[in-house]
Simulated scan of single mutants.
Amino acid sequence: MDVLTVLPSNFGYAIFTYLYSWVMLGYLAIKVGAGRKKYGVKYPTMYSDKEPVFNCIQRAHQNTLEVYPQWLVFQTLAALVYPLSASVLGAIWVTSRLSYAWGYYTGDPSKRMNGAYGYIGYFGVIFLSISVALQLLGLF
C-alpha cells in the first residue's frame, strides 16, 4: 500500500504546516542561544537570577515546547480527514507562537498575550480531532 494513495490529496498542506512549525521552533531555539550569549547564561543553567529578559526568551521557547507534542498529535489526527482546515488552523497556531515569543521578548511577560489568537488554531485542531474520533466510532 502506497502512502500517497492512503493520505488525502491535500495532506501536503499539512506537511508544509509541520515544516513551518519546525522553522518556528528553530527560530525560538536560536533566540535562546543568542540570549545565552548576550546575557551570559551558561549551560546547563535554564534561567538567570539576574537577567529577567533572558528568562522571558527562555520561557517563550520552553512554553512552546511544552505544548508542541500535543499540538502535533491533534494536528495530525485532524489533517488525516480535514487536511486543508487543519493546515490553516495549524498555520494560525504556529504564527501565534511567533507573536507570543516576540511579545515575551520585550521583557514584559504580559505582552506574550499578543499570541493569544493561537487558541483558535489549537482548539480548532482539537475540535476536528474529536470530529474524526466520532466519525470513526460511527457516532457522527
Rank of each mutant, 00 (worst) to 15 (best):
M1I: 12
M1Y: 09
D2W: 02
L4A: 15
L7S: 05
P8Y: 02
N10Q: 03
F11Q: 08
T17E: 09
L19K: 06
Y20P: 05
S21Y: 08
W22S: 12
W22L: 03
M24Q: 01
L25T: 07
G26Y: 01
G26I: 10
Y27N: 00
Y27C: 00
A29D: 06
I30M: 11
V32G: 09
G33S: 12
A34V: 14
A34W: 09
R36Y: 08
R36P: 02
K38D: 02
Y39V: 01
G40H: 04
V41W: 07
V41K: 02
V41G: 13
Y47I: 07
S48Q: 05
D49R: 12
K50F: 04
K50Q: 08
P52Y: 00
V53S: 03
F54K: 05
N55H: 08
N55F: 05
I57Y: 07
Q58T: 05
Q58E: 11
Q58L: 06
A60V: 00
A60Q: 02
A60S: 08
H61W: 10
N63E: 11
V67F: 12
Q70G: 13
L72I: 14
L72H: 09
V73H: 14
F74P: 04
F74N: 12
F74E: 01
Q75A: 15
T76K: 10
T76F: 12
A79M: 08
A79S: 14
A79Q: 03
L80W: 09
L80I: 07
L80V: 11
P83N: 01
P83G: 00
P83Q: 03
A86S: 10
A86W: 09
A86M: 00
A86H: 01
V88T: 00
G90W: 10
G90P: 07
G90C: 05
G90R: 14
G90Y: 12
G90Q: 06
W93Q: 11
W93V: 03
T95W: 10
S96R: 07
S96V: 00
R97L: 02
R97N: 11
L98V: 14
L98A: 13
Y104S: 05
Y104R: 03
Y105M: 15
Y105W: 15
Y105F: 11
T106D: 08
T106F: 02
G107I: 14
G107N: 09
D108E: 14
R112D: 11
R112N: 01
M113A: 11
G115W: 03
G115Q: 08
G115L: 13
I120N: 03
G121Y: 08
Y122M: 10
Y122D: 05
F123S: 11
G124N: 09
G124M: 06
V125S: 05
V125N: 05
F127G: 13
L128A: 07
I130S: 04
I130W: 15
S131H: 04
S131V: 08
A133L: 15
G138W: 04
L139C: 01
F140D: 02
